[in-house]
Design a protein around this nucleic acid. Structure first.
Length: 437
RNA sequence: UCCUGAGUAGCUCAAUGGCAGAGCAUUCGGCUGUUAACCGAAGGGUUGUAGGUUCGAGUCCUACCUCAGGAGCCA
């Protein structure tokens, strides 16, 4: 059995392919069935005079997405899209899609709702398949970066007893009569394993019941989070830029055909190499104020606030590679972030904003290492201190400076693929109004 | 939760308050190099739901439902 992806190694030979009928064009006694097998598509050719009658009859009028096993001779042909054609010799129809109930997704345009209701079929389309292949490469390269740099993968629980951050909305579940929640971040847990193993990362799904309905939000998304003992914010910035560079360059190296299928501008990705530009929060504020004066932003930016979505979009569109904005005001950031020793009004944190207006894909920080400070922060934020005793233990017993970040896989995929919406970056997106299929 | 927009054939969309339309898909016929093939024909409709205004509503008004985009929040 051969695959369409490596059909070029079989020019002049007869090969066997198993797959589906993607589309079919007919011109009298000449048939052009296009097959797909999950690795690509190839056009077949069948002359009525050149194939047995039963082969011609099986292909003539064959319905879209019928499953088939075909044999044929591979031929180079400049007229064909992939450069190769298959002169069909035999065909076995595994299952014929009935005319009375044709495959619903045609090659013409469809609306979002229609496609999302049929996501289980939509993933067959070349564009969606290409995106999922790139997603897989991003996940592989991300894990590879950490695995080959001394990190140990330690995945946190998905069922948790309490809010990790207390801010976002959580999905509650019944845990044998107790209330538990689906995790919204593994960070607190991997701080624990980082102090056990030194350099760790986690990789898994996270859940946020935010009623957000934008092109950047899913209620269930995948996050990869490194956490490193004895690492400060500067070390974290270096880690983030090297990590992202490795991922983008791996995609360019291993998924170039797929980037072509989805029409991604390759030049923009080639520019993604460390080091990345760095901006203090203050400097970013000045840029935003200037942008407002110049009429690029509607709302004036109020110093001291966190950036809004339009702010991030504008900032990130000013650079040809991800920009790392660091040292935000501590008041607008999470309780576990270490204050800047130079000026405790600022937090030792970083947001990495992807270029081309994609906004935040990474958020990270150096963590509070002082027991007393962390305890007062938890109390100040009105969080249940009992639920955080285990977390405070990390500061009781051999506390060290440590840092980590989280990257949302779907946002990274959306950026690297140049997509309009994150719903296409995951096989089955979970959004505010959709949990089917 | 709030703001904005859209619901008409299986799909994508038209239709000044006055006969419900096209392309694609499906069916039938034609075509020996098609590239979302093309050409001819046929079938296909409770215009999201419930009220209201009007001689007359897909179109105007009210409520609701569904979807989409955005804000806040976030990765």
């Amino acid at each position: 059995m051969t695959t369409i992806a490596n059909i070029g190694q079989h020019v002049g030979q007869s090969v066997k392919l198993q797959g589906w009928l993607y589309n079919s064009r007919e011109s009298g006694k000449l048939l052009f069935p296009i097959f797909r097998d999950g690795t690509g598509t190839i056009q077949g050719v069948a002359h009525k005079a050149g194939v047995p009658a039963e082969v011609f009859d099986a292909l003539k009028g064959l319905t879209q997405e019928s499953s088939v096993i075909v044999t044929g001779k591979v031929r180079e042909d400049k007229r064909a899209h992939g450069g190769y054609e298959l002169d069909v010799e035999t065909v076995e129809v595994v299952q014929r899609v009935p005319e009375a109930d044709p495959y619903p997704i045609t090659l013409k345009e469809h609306g979002t709702d229609f496609l999302m209701e049929r996501r289980h079929l939509w993933v067959r389309s070349p564009r969606q398949s290409a995106i999922l292949r790139i997603r897989a490469e991003i996940m592989r390269a991300a894990a590879e970066y950490f695995d080959s740099n001394g990190f140990i993968r330690t995945d946190p629980p998905i069922l948790t007893p309490a809010a990790c951050e207390g801010t976002s909305t959580l999905f509650p579940v019944d845990y044998f009569g107790d209330e538990a929640f689906l995790t919204q971040s593994g960070q607190l847990y991997i701080e624990s394993t980082a102090l056990a193993l030194g350099k760790v990362y986690s990789f898994g799904p996270t859940f946020r019941a935010e009623k957000s309905k934008t092109r950047r939000h899913l209620t269930e998304f995948w996050m990869i989070e490194p956490e490193v003992a004895f690492m400060d914010l500067d070390g974290l910035l270096e880690l983030a830029e090297n990590f992202l560079s490795h991922i983008v360059q791996s995609v360019l190296k291993n998924r170039l055909p797929e980037l072509g299928v989805i029409g991604r501008d390759i030049e923009k990705l080639k520019a993604i190499n460390a080091p990345f530009p760095r901006l203090r929060y203050d400097e970013a504020c000045e840029m935003l104020n200037q942008a407002h004066k110049d009429g690029h932003l509607e709302a004036p930016f109020e110093y001291g606030n966190d950036f809004g979505s339009p702010d991030e979009t504008w900032l990130s569109s000013q650079f040809d590679r991800p920009v790392m904005v660091h040292r935000y005001p501590a008041d607008v950031k999470a309780f576990y972030m270490e204050p800047d020793p130079q000026d405790p009004k600022f937090a030792m944190c970083v947001d990495v904003l992807a270029p081309e207006g994609y906004g935040e894909i990474i958020g990270g920080s150096q963590r509070v290492s002082s027991y007393e400070l962390l305890k007062s922060r938890i109390e100040h934020h009105g969080l249940p201190i009992d639920a955080f005793q285990w977390y405070l233990d990390l500061r009781r017993y051999g506390s060290v400076p440590h840092s980590g970040f989280g990257m949302g896989i779907e946002r990274a995929v959306a950026w690297i693929c140049g997509l309009e919406h994150v719903r296409e970056t995951i096989p089955f997106a979970r959004t505010l109004n959709r949990i089917y299929p």
